[in-house]
Design a protein around this nucleic acid. Sequence first.
DNA 1: CTGTATCCGGGAAGATACTG
DNA 2: CAGTATCTTCCCGGATACAG
Lengths: 133, 133
Amino acid sequence: MFNRKSSVLKSATTHILGYYTTFKKYILYKRKTPLKNDCAIEKTLNVISGKWKPAILSQLLKTNLRLRDIQKGLPEASKRSLTQQLREMIEDGLIEKKDFHQFPKKTEYSITYLGTQLSSVFQELSKFGDKLE
Amino acid sequence: MFNRKSSVLKSATTHILGYYTTFKKYILYKRKTPLKNDCAIEKTLNVISGKWKPAILSQLLKTNLRLRDIQKGLPEASKRSLTQQLREMIEDGLIEKKDFHQFPKKTEYSITYLGTQLSSVFQELSKFGDKLE
DNA sequence: CTGTATCCGGGAAGATACTG
DNA sequence: CAGTATCTTCCCGGATACAG
């Protein structure tokens, strides 16, 4: 989960797992600045602090949703960002995806049991946020 | 607190408060992507999710500290990052700074009452983090 | 010792076009 | 519809030198 691999295209010099390469192709690399995964607090922050993650999770805590519906609720977010953050949250086990094999494509995102346990975290975050200014 | 101003040097084209300029000098600018400050959850996340903030706050929840001591506890963080994150947390009212006017300089950072209320947030974050893998 | 000035690299996320 | 490919912009935080 930490040092999460992402795919990226670099046209010039880039790095693979810490080593540099100049090949122009999609590669997997580890995050440059490793997270302090020995701290439970930072672990949680890392899985929920994507730009749209709290918003998505709040929605999914209420009901299952298709990508289209998530977009409708977050019109400012690009589709790319949303699918990326959804993918990360699937990797982290917070949510699940179900594919209905049909055309046009249909998928549905839902919260996992682990994900539901975030609600007490959100409750505290919200309580504190109300005290700010 | 949101749309916090930062100073930055751009050698080419950059923007001031949303408008673009090509002057090469230090300017103040607002964040390009405004935060959704209507959500209490995101408010909290925004004030605690700097790279070293949770670590600093955890320390200050125990005792007052000088910059030197914070650095000792976080040898991987640069001085610049630490002072910057400390400054932001002062702006957000989480911590306070006391200057002893002497030479060599001496200052001391301490948690505010608002800051102490973060402990229940951290508790939940920590509890959830233990459930991750 | 505390803090700022300056420069820079890299990862996150936006825009847009395309695929199945 | 759902998702990826590609390029671009932005901004956080590291390194280093300097100032009071």
